Structure formats: C-alpha cells, structure tokens
Deep mutational scan, measured.
Amino acid sequence: KLPPGWEKRMSRSSGRVYYFNHITNASQWERPSGNSSSG
C-alpha cells in the first residue's frame, strides 16, 4: 500500500506508470516508500 496522499497514475505521453501525491503535488517515477519514518 502506498503512503498517504500517493496514488498510481499513468503518463499519457510515455505510457509509463508514475506516482503522484495530491497532498504535496509531488510526482516521481520511483515507488514512494511507506515503511521508512520521515525525518
């Protein structure tokens, strides 16, 4: 399961899957890690 705020999306241009955070408006190709504590 993804960390809070993150969701899986697909890029229309490349067709690749990326991850988008609707809370911080951040996007990245790598899967966000939800196990590590923020610090």
Rank of each mutant, 00 (worst) to 15 (best):
K1W: 13
K1G: 13
K1I: 10
K1S: 12
K1Q: 14
K1N: 13
K1R: 13
K1A: 13
L2K: 09
L2R: 01
L2A: 02
L2P: 15
L2V: 04
L2S: 02
L2H: 02
L2N: 01
L2W: 02
L2T: 03
L2Q: 02
L2M: 05
L2Y: 03
P3V: 01
P3H: 02
P3D: 04
P3T: 02
P3C: 05
P3G: 05
P3A: 04
P3S: 03
P3L: 04
P4S: 06
P4E: 09
P4H: 09
P4A: 09
P4R: 06
P4L: 08
G5Q: 04
G5R: 01
G5E: 06
G5K: 02
G5P: 07
G5A: 04
G5F: 06
G5I: 02
G5L: 02
W6L: 01
W6N: 00
W6S: 00
W6Q: 01
W6P: 00
W6M: 00
W6I: 01
W6H: 01
W6R: 00
W6A: 00
E7Q: 08
E7H: 09
E7W: 03
E7S: 07
E7G: 03
E7I: 09
E7P: 01
E7T: 08
E7K: 05
K8P: 07
K8T: 09
K8L: 13
K8M: 14
K8I: 13
K8V: 14
K8Y: 07
K8G: 04
R9M: 05
R9K: 08
R9C: 15
R9E: 03
R9I: 06
R9D: 02
R9T: 03
R9G: 03
R9S: 02
R9N: 02
M10I: 15
M10K: 14
M10E: 10
M10S: 08
M10H: 13
M10A: 09
M10F: 15
M10N: 09
S11Q: 14
S11R: 04
S11F: 08
S11I: 14
S11G: 06
S11N: 08
S11M: 10
R12S: 15
R12F: 12
R12I: 15
R12N: 14
R12D: 14
R12A: 15
R12T: 15
R12V: 15
R12E: 15
S13G: 13
S13E: 13
S13A: 11
S13R: 14
S13H: 14
S13D: 13
S13L: 11
S13F: 12
S13C: 15
S14T: 14
S14H: 09
S14D: 10
S14F: 07
S14A: 07
S14N: 12
S14W: 06
G15Y: 04
G15V: 03
G15M: 06
G15N: 08
G15T: 03
G15L: 05
G15I: 02
G15F: 04
G15H: 07
R16T: 06
R16Y: 05
R16K: 11
R16V: 06
R16G: 03
R16Q: 07
R16P: 01
R16A: 06
R16M: 06
V17I: 13
V17L: 07
V17G: 02
V17N: 04
V17R: 02
V17F: 10
V17M: 08
V17H: 08
V17Q: 05
V17T: 09
V17C: 07
V17E: 09
Y18I: 02
Y18C: 05
Y18P: 00
Y18L: 02
Y18W: 06
Y18A: 00
Y18Q: 00
Y18N: 00
Y18M: 02
Y18D: 00
Y18R: 01
Y18E: 02
Y19Q: 00
Y19R: 00
Y19F: 07
Y19I: 00
Y19K: 00
Y19N: 00
Y19S: 00
Y19E: 00
F20I: 05
F20Q: 01
F20G: 00
F20K: 03
F20A: 01
F20R: 02
F20H: 08
F20E: 01
F20W: 08
F20N: 02
F20Y: 14
F20V: 05
N21F: 04
N21G: 01
N21A: 01
N21L: 03
N21K: 02
N21W: 00
N21R: 01
N21Q: 02
N21D: 03
N21Y: 03
N21M: 03
H22Y: 14
H22L: 12
H22Q: 09
H22T: 15
H22W: 13
H22M: 09
H22V: 15
H22F: 13
H22D: 04
I23N: 08
I23H: 09
I23A: 08
I23R: 06
I23F: 13
I23D: 07
I23S: 06
T24R: 03
T24N: 05
T24E: 03
T24K: 02
T24W: 04
T24D: 05
T24L: 06
T24V: 02
N25R: 14
N25A: 08
N25L: 13
N25M: 14
N25H: 14
N25E: 07
N25W: 09
N25T: 06
A26I: 14
A26G: 06
A26R: 14
A26Y: 09
A26M: 14
A26W: 11
A26V: 15
A26N: 08
S27T: 13
S27Q: 08
S27V: 15
S27A: 14
S27P: 03
S27Y: 14
S27W: 15
S27D: 03
S27R: 14
S27L: 14
S27C: 15
S27I: 15
Q28C: 07
Q28V: 05
Q28H: 03
Q28T: 06
Q28D: 03
Q28R: 04
Q28Y: 03
Q28K: 04
Q28E: 03
Q28S: 08
Q28L: 03
W29D: 05
W29L: 06
W29H: 05
W29V: 06
W29R: 06
W29P: 03
W29Q: 04
W29F: 08
W29T: 06
W29E: 05
E30F: 07
E30L: 07
E30W: 08
E30S: 08
E30A: 08
E30C: 07
E30R: 09
E30I: 07
E30Q: 09
R31D: 08
R31F: 14
R31Q: 06
R31E: 09
R31H: 13
R31G: 03
R31V: 10
R31L: 09
P32W: 02
P32M: 00
P32F: 01
P32L: 02
P32I: 01
P32N: 01
P32H: 01
P32G: 01
P32S: 00
S33N: 11
S33I: 12
S33K: 10
S33H: 10
S33R: 10
S33A: 11
S33T: 14
S33Q: 13
S33L: 11
S33Y: 10
S33D: 13
G34V: 12
G34S: 12
G34A: 11
G34K: 09
G34H: 13
G34D: 13
G34P: 11
G34I: 13
G34M: 12
G34N: 12
G34Y: 13
G34W: 15
N35T: 12
N35D: 12
N35S: 13
N35H: 11
N35G: 12
N35Q: 11
N35W: 07
N35M: 10
N35L: 12
N35F: 10
S36C: 13
S36E: 13
S36I: 12
S36Y: 08
S36Q: 11
S36L: 12
S36H: 10
S36M: 11
S36D: 12
S36G: 11
S37H: 11
S37D: 11
S37P: 12
S37T: 11
S38K: 07
S38W: 10
S38C: 15
S38I: 11
S38T: 12
S38N: 13
S38A: 12
S38V: 12
S38Y: 09
S38E: 11
G39Y: 09
G39P: 11
G39E: 11
G39V: 10
G39Q: 13
G39L: 10
G39C: 14
G39N: 11
G39S: 11
